[in-house]
Design a protein around this nucleic acid. Structure first.
Lengths: 194, 194
DNA sequence: AAATATATTGAGACAGTCTCAACTTAGCAA
DNA sequence: TTGCTAAGTTGAGACTGTCTCAATATATTT
């Protein structure tokens, strides 16, 4: 399995590796403060390198974001797998959805990148997003088999919902995001009555 | 009631009025093609005026967007009022929510502007957004009184939901937006069972 | 046909993205 | 240790974009 470039691919020169790490560290700081649309120039400046160096390590913003999110995305997929052992299929789904929203709320603007990347196969984030979607799908299907979630909901619906809720939380308040998530999850229940 | 400056406030010079209209027309075209984050420079160029002229009519993007959306926003508020006469309180809410999503999907990026504007009182769009929220609130309360919508849902929740769904549709597909809206509306029903 | 209030102009200050030819340096081999 | 070379860095410069404002032009009024 060839994961799309583990952090430093073969072996980097010591200075290159050092700059790579510094850039990632500053990116985390700057994205936390100003969202994922923050100035890359600023990140390079703070890392003490010329902006050309940033671009040589990360050809574009998505690539930088991917490097920054890789571990967390994998962790989120892993969490989904672990939750397959949870006694309640429905509770497992809910727990995971909350974790996914929290993950997506990490940086302002992240939800937009993550939802767009599922559609855009050229995005550096595409594979990781696809993995998360698939991981969520397992939980969804288990809940559907248990009859606690409507059968016509798809993994894409779940993924879009998580991102939409995270996005709304980002624009207004985390509390608002929480509320919408609760409502949305209820909306996924089968309509026992009409 | 002093609405925030009806289009051309007092009386404009003929050339000014002409340019104002041209700018609005080109803005509609360009926003349709490239979303609300499109280049203002481009709009001015296409309208055949210097960019300073654009900025003298519309001090910022929000102001331009406000002028462009004013009528439609009012229409949306009006629709909500009309629907208060609809025989089914719940159906009225659903019809209106769909209309609101369609409205919000008019230009790419619009949902973000509309949701942000409800929080940001300095935004030119704030008043219009507030009016829409209040109009929706009437429909929501009527449905709650009829017992078809959970009592703890607020007008802010409804507003955020509409924008979040429209945003998700924008990022993926209109069909996806439709699906999320259906689920979300179901999520607003009272949980008769648990 | 002025006078004047009202508008328009476009250069310019600034910030950002991204590229690439010239340069520098880490790490290896003689 | 020295020099070689591949790997990495640099920063100016070509763009595109936002927004301002002194100079200029023009519609309207008297």
């Amino acid at each position: 399995m060839t994961t799309t470039g583990p952090a430093p691919q073969r072996r980097m020169r010591a200075d290159a590796r050092r700059n790579y790490e510094r850039l990632l560290a500053e990116a985390a700081t700057v994205f936390t403060a100003h969202g994922v649309e923050a100035s890359l120039e600023d990140i390079a400046r703070r890392a003490g390198v010329a902006n050309g160096t940033l671009y040589s390590h990360f050809p574009n913003r998505q690539a930088l974001l991917e490097a920054l999110m890789r571990d967390r995305m994998q962790a989120l997929s892993g969490t989904a797998r672990d939750l397959l052992d949870h006694p309640s299929a429905h509770e497992a789904l809910v727990i995971w959805a909350r974790a996914a929203v929290a993950h997506t709320t990490m940086y302002r603007g992240l939800a937009a990148s993550l939802l767009r990347s599922i559609e855009d196969e050229t995005s550096e984030l595409h594979a990781a997003c696809q993995a998360v979607l698939t991981a969520g799908e397992q939980l969804l299907e288990r809940a559907q088999a248990a009859g606690t979630v409507r059968g016509d909901a798809t993994a894409s619906d779940l993924y879009a919902l998580i991102n939409a809720v995270a996005w709304a939380g980002e624009q207004t308040s985390a509390a608002q995001g929480e509320r919408l998530l609760s409502f949305s999850i209820d909306g996924l229940r089968p309509s026992s009555r009409r």
